[in-house]
C-alpha cells in the first residue's frame, strides 16, 4: 500500500452535499480514494449511500462541494474529457439482471461499451472473450438474453461489462447482494483478483460487513447523509470509535455455534431525512447521548492515521493499535 500522502488521489470528494429539493441526502462528505485502494461505504437504507455514489459518478450534480477525478472537477468536464471520464469510471449494479438492457444479447451487451466509445471491435473482441472466461462464464452465454441466464451469471456479465473498457475506478454497489453464501466468496475472490490484475481502484457500497472486511482498505460509515466515521478497515471494524459503528457491527448475528451472543440491539429506527434530529443525528438511538449531543452537532475529530470520527463521546480517543 502506497502512502496516502505521497500519491495523488484518484477520486476526491470535498464537502460533498446533495439535496433532493429541500431534503438533504448527503451532507458534507469528504474523502480521498487513492489508486489501487478499496474504500467501502457502509450504512443502513436511508443513509445516503446510493446518493453518494451517484454523485461521485457524476450522474447527479452535487448541491455543494466538489467531486474530483484524477485532479479534475467532474462537474466541469465537457466533450472529450467527459467521455474519457465515462470510460475510466465503471459500475457494477446491485440488481445485476435489471441493469442489463432486456432486449440485447450478452454478446451485444459486452460490445456496447466498445461501440459507445468508438473502440474497434475487431481488435478488442478477443480481449473481451478473455474477460468472459476470467469472470467464469462459458461462451455459450453470448447468445442469450438477460432473462435466460441465472442471477449469478448476470452478476458476472455485469462485472465483465464494467471491465471491457479497462476502467481505472470501479464502483461496486452491493456486489454480493442476493447471492447464495456458496458463491459469495467466489465473487469476492473474483473482484479482488481483478483489482490486482487490472490495477483497479474500488469504491464499494455494501451492507454485508463480512464482505467489507474481506475487501476493503478503508471504511466510511454513513448515517443520515453524514460520514460519522472513516478510517482504515481494521480500525473501524475492529476498534470502532463511533457508537453507531459499534451497534452496526453488533447487530450482525455472529456465526458461533454453541455460544449465544445477546448484544443489546440498537433501539429505534433511522429517522427521516426530512426531519432530522437536532444536534447529532444519531442521538435519539445512542446509548451515550447527553444534553450536548442533543444540542450541538459534533465536529469531525481525528484519532490517528486518518481515522476520523464525528462524535462528542468517541468510544476511544487514544490512537488505535493497528
Amino acid at each position: 500500500m502506497s502512502h496516502p500522502l505521497l500519491s495523488l488521489a484518484l477520486l476526491s470528494l470535498d464537502g460533498l452535499s446533495l439535496n433532493y429539493g429541500t431534503v438533504p441526502a448527503v451532507r458534507a462528505v469528504s474523502f480521498d480514494l487513492h489508486p489501487g485502494e478499496t474504500l467501502s461505504v457502509v450504512g443502513e437504507s436511508g443513509s445516503g449511500k446510493s446518493s453518494l455514489i451517484r454523485t461521485a459518478l457524476g450522474l447527479v450534480p452535487p448541491t455543494a462541494g466538489t467531486v474530483r477525478f484524477d485532479g479534475r472537477e467532474v462537474k466541469s468536464l465537457r466533450g472529450r474529457e467527459a467521455k474519457a471520464f465515462r470510460r475510466d469510471v465503471q459500475m457494477i449494479f446491485q440488481d445485476p439482471a435489471a441493469a442489463l438492457s432486456p432486449r440485447m444479447t450478452v454478446r451485444s451487451l459486452l460490445a456496447e461499451p466498445l461501440r459507445i466509445h468508438g473502440v474497434a471491435e475487431r481488435d478488442t473482441w478477443p480481449g473481451v472473450l478473455d474477460l468472459l472466461r476470467r469472470v467464469g462464464l462459458p461462451e455459450s452465454v453470448l447468445d442469450k438474453h438477460p432473462h435466460q441466464i441465472s442471477g449469478g451469471q448476470a452478476r458476472r456479465v455485469g462485472i465483465a461489462r464494467a471491465l471491457v473498457l479497462r476502467p481505472r475506478l470501479l464502483v461496486a454497489d452491493e456486489p454480493t447482494a442476493g447471492l447464495d453464501l456458496s458463491v459469495q466468496g467466489d465473487i469476492v475472490n473474483l473482484l479482488v483478483g481483478l483489482q490486482r490484475d487490472f490495477g483497479l481502484t474500488i469504491l464499494m457500497v455494501s451492507h454485508n460487513l463480512d464482505v467489507v472486511r474481506a475487501m476493503s482498505d478503508r471504511v466510511l460509515v454513513l448515517y443520515l447523509g453524514r460520514a460519522v466515521e472513516v478510517g482504515r478497515a481494521e480500525h473501524v471494524l475492529n476498534v470502532p470509535a463511533h457508537p453507531y459503528t459499534r451497534a452496526l457491527l453488533a447487530a450482525v448475528p455472529r456465526f458461533d455455534p454453541g455460544n449465544r451472543h445477546r448484544a443489546p440491539p440498537l433501539r429505534g429506527e433511522v429517522p427521516s431525512p426530512r426531519n432530522p434530529p437536532s444536534g447529532c443525528a444519531f442521538h435519539p438511538r445512542c446509548p451515550l447521548a447527553d444534553a450536548r449531543c442533543r444540542a450541538e452537532e459534533p465536529a469531525e475529530r481525528i484519532l490517528t492515521d486518518g481515522h476520523r470520527v464525528a462524535c462528542h463521546h468517541p468510544l476511544h480517543a487514544v490512537p488505535a493499535a493497528a
Binding site: 450522474l59 465515462r86 442489463l100 461499451p113 455485469g158 461489462r161
Partner: peptide, 22 residues
C-alpha cells in the same frame, strides 16, 4: 429510472443512443 438505463448512462451512452437503442 430502471437500472439498465442508468447502466448505459454510466457507460457513457448519449441521450440519442439511450432513446433509440434502449
Amino acid at each position: 429510472n430502471s437500472p439498465f438505463l442508468e447502466a448505459e448512462r454510466v457507460l457513457g451512452a448519449s441521450p440519442l443512443r439511450l432513446a433509440l437503442h434502449h
